[in-house]
């Protein structure tokens, strides 16, 4: 997808054809990335991107998510394996929270998850949404999800086309840091590029902690860097292409039976300021 972004970026006032001829499968959650690229092309350079040679089954999946390319035209998702595509204003986190509640967490296709697991999933996604707002300095966030019933996995992707993590870390450190190293730094405990009176640097730590216990996965692509973590093992690499934003994919194990209530012995009065 970063490669598509790179090819589209120099175009201006053009009509671009994105050819799906040799694409046999396109994860629904990747529509968040496609939406961000199409938006960027239109907003910055007035380019129009047409999707051509889409296989009928792919077109069907796109329509099930109400992907905006088809004017929001939708098809029923009988197997409930997709989570509706959405372009959200970063200022409207309340409405995004309701979207998660209605379009993701009450999806009848999902297994019967514990209330706590649902809560953890929602909170993780909301932390990422807020990161885009706080650090991306962007107007919109693009999101979409794909559920794999046989694997018991739910992938949810959030993309913004604002500041890259690399730019934020470079501005903050004054060092010419690579995209890969910037992400590694940003996801480490206590690290934040914030300077004001509101502390930061906790959100990613909590998400990583939860996803490791959940046996899920987190993937981040920003600028020319890529990083992922799965089951306590992280890996990063330099990308040959540049993506002018940040894409975060969270993969949840929805069959997880853990309680996560590790601190039940703590009472309110134990909270010491």
């Amino acid at each position: 997808m970063a490669n598509i972004y790179r090819q589209v970026k120099p175009c201006q006032f053009e009509t671009i054809q994105l050819d799906f001829q040799n694409t046999t499968w396109f994860d629904a959650n990747m529509l968040a990335m496609l939406g961000a690229i199409m938006e960027s092309a239109w907003r910055n350079d007035f380019d129009i991107i047409n999707l051509v040679n889409l296989r009928p089954e792919q077109k069907k999946i796109f329509k099930k998510t109400r992907y905006s390319y088809f004017g929001g035209e939708s098809l029923p998702d009988h197997y409930q394996t997709t989570v509706e595509y959405r372009k959200s204003k970063v200022s409207e986190i309340g409405s995004f929270e309701k979207y998660l509640e209605k379009k993701l967490l009450v999806n009848p296709g999902l297994p019967n998850m514990s209330a706590l697991l649902r809560k953890k999933i929602k909170e993780s996604i909301l932390e990422i949404f807020n990161n885009a707002k706080m650090h991306g300095n962007c107007e919109f966030v693009f999101s979409c999800g794909q559920y794999y019933p046989r694997k018991g996995r739910l992938d949810f992707t959030i993309v913004d086309i604002g500041n890259t993590i690399r730019k934020k870390v470079r501005d903050y450190s004054g060092r010419k840091v690579s995209g890969r190293r910037s992400i590694e730094w940003a996801v480490s405990e206590d690290n934040t590029t914030r300077k004001g009176n509101i502390p930061g640097g906790l959100g990613f730590t909590l998400i990583r902690d939860f996803l490791c216990k959940n046996k899920g996965k987190i993937q981040i692509a920003s600028a020319d860097g890529y990083w992922y973590e799965k089951e306590y093992t992280s890996h990063s690499e330099d990308l040959s292409d540049f993506f002018g934003g940040t894409a975060v994919n969270l993969e949840f194990n929805v069959n997880d039976q853990c309680s996560y209530c590790l601190t039940s012995e703590i009472s309110d009065t134990d909270i010491s300021f």
Partner: peptide
């Protein structure tokens, strides 16, 4: 209960 840890952190 599950939010207490978040508050402490």
């Amino acid at each position: 209960p599950e939010d207490r840890d978040r508050m402490i952190k």
